[in-house]
């Protein structure tokens, strides 16, 4: 087993605060009508949130490279799901 430094409690709390702030941002943006902008902002916030969870809560920041590859594979497959679905959704008449 590869051991890696476990982050301090403080880091966890800070990350949690960060997640809550991002959540409030999402909520707030709902009140500003921006057309496509809303979707873009919300997606960006969602990505930021997942990155926080992945890197800190799931310890991927300090994990063995095989684990990182495994995690990246998940995203790669998600990209396949979204990408190939879009071949349909964006080209319908």
């Amino acid at each position: 087993m590869i051991t890696h430094p476990v982050p301090a409690i403080r880091t966890y709390v800070l990350v949690w605060v960060g997640l809550i702030v991002l959540l409030l941002l999402t909520l707030g943006s709902a009140f500003i009508p921006l057309g496509w902008g809303n979707a873009a902002i919300n997606l960006a916030i969602a990505v930021a949130k997942s990155l926080l969870v992945i890197f800190f809560y799931m310890h991927l920041r300090s994990a063995h490279y095989v684990l990182r590859i495994a995690a990246t594979a998940g995203f790669f497959w998600l990209a396949i799901l979204l990408g190939l679905s879009l071949t349909d959704f964006v080209t319908r008449y």
Binding site: L84, T87, T91, R92, Y93
Partner: peptide
């Protein structure tokens, strides 16, 4: 993982997607 759309050729997906 890249072929699931072949279950949907007459489902109402786009022609382009069907060809892919």
């Amino acid at each position: 993982f890249l072929v699931w759309g072949h279950h949907m050729f007459v489902a109402g997906t786009s022609v382009y997607s069907s060809i892919v």
